[in-house]
Amino acid sequence: MLIERYIYLAIALFCIGIVGVLARRNAIIIFMCIELMLNAVNLLLVAFSKMHHAAGVGKAAAAGIDGQLFVFFIMVVAAAEVSVGLAIIVMMYRNTHSVDVNFLNRLKH
């Protein structure tokens, strides 16, 4: 299988994520888009790891394994982020009755 296809898919996912973050104002959707970007990266990591493993068979048994390990780290971090982030969004909803990020321009002051 060609590695390029994975790359195209990952780029597509990443761009969707970016556009989502930039364009949408709903905090939850922004959050999902961030997850999308992270997963695009995950996808790439796994794909390249597989490729390296295939190329390194016979020379080193554990070739390409660190890429997959990274994915786990990212997933853990993403999970932690979601838990904190969702909590913030809940608090925000309680205060403003909205999940629109443009209400949250307090950083200016």
């Binding site: 970016i18 973050v21 930039l22 104002r25 990020v101 443009n102 949250l104 321009n105 307090r106 950083l107 200016k108 002051h109």
Partner: peptide
Amino acid sequence: LQSGLVGNYVLLMV
């Protein structure tokens, strides 16, 4: 430059 809007920051970052 500090508009306080998250969207602007992200756009600038990108």
